[in-house]
Amino acid sequence: MTDDDVYWALIDVANGLISGTMLGGYYAIIAIGLTLTFGVMRLVNLAHGDWLVFSAYLSLVFLSLVPISPLYTLIGVVPVMYGVGYALQRLLLNRVSVQAMEQKGMSTSFGLMSPILVTFGMSIVLAQGLLAGFSSNTQVIRNELSYSAIQLSEDLSVSTLRLTFFCVAVAILVLTALLLRATHVGRAIRAASDDAEIAPLMGMRPARIYATASGISLAIAGVAGVMVGMTRPFQPFDGPQFLLVAFGVVILGGMGSLAGSLVGGILLGVVQILAGTYFGPSAQLVGGYMLILAVLALKPQGLFAR
């Protein structure tokens, strides 16, 4: 092996690590909302991916009204999605939650099942609604960032868009962690997630706390949706793909763990990119799923389980 071969082999690995890590940040953002609602109220939201796609369309709607840079549509998308999440939880999901079912004397397994069915239905309604509203045409959020890259060395570069998203992902994780750790609302969310029966005895209103958590979850899904739309073309029925990514990340990182979703996302991203580099594009998915299977076999509760 010549020095040149070694150099290019190292460049391949370095590129894989960099783009895998960047991809991981993007995956983490897709997963945080899911892990948050599960961690706080044991709610598995099967419509998570569809709300993400919904947010991408919402961003398009804002762009058609005001010609601004796509990232600025977050100013509209995030509050709207917070409101959607809050209202959904308050008006619908709190009525079918595992806690509500347990209170009605149903078993826990039945209780866990009912929101799954409801959010599955919500997923279908959302996708069909997007189809009716926007047709099945592929859409994309045009932006300049996706055409530019930052040169790290002669042969190493990183996409500006991916780097931006990675930074946003880390920022969202830090902010969410701070919110949960140091604020009034955050402590209430953690208390209710620790013991939902005791929290009301301390004067907290679970219905409102859960609604807030759902609002935050969908607000983050909103950020993810805009990013997805800026990265790749999307259609009304793309939701389940993102749900799968989110599940993968959450399995790796551990349900309910914020740090786990970043680490899980990066792990998944790096393995996918490296598998793709060495074994061809078709190995990307297989590599990712093999990683997930390995973690399920060795540490089924995830790497960062609470």
Partner: peptide, 16 residues
């Protein structure tokens, strides 16, 4: 609330 410190436990009780 097992994942919270004693201080935080008392804080949520005092605040709410």
């Amino acid at each position: 609330f097992g994942h919270m410190t004693v201080y935080e436990n008392l804080m949520v009780a005092a605040r709410f």
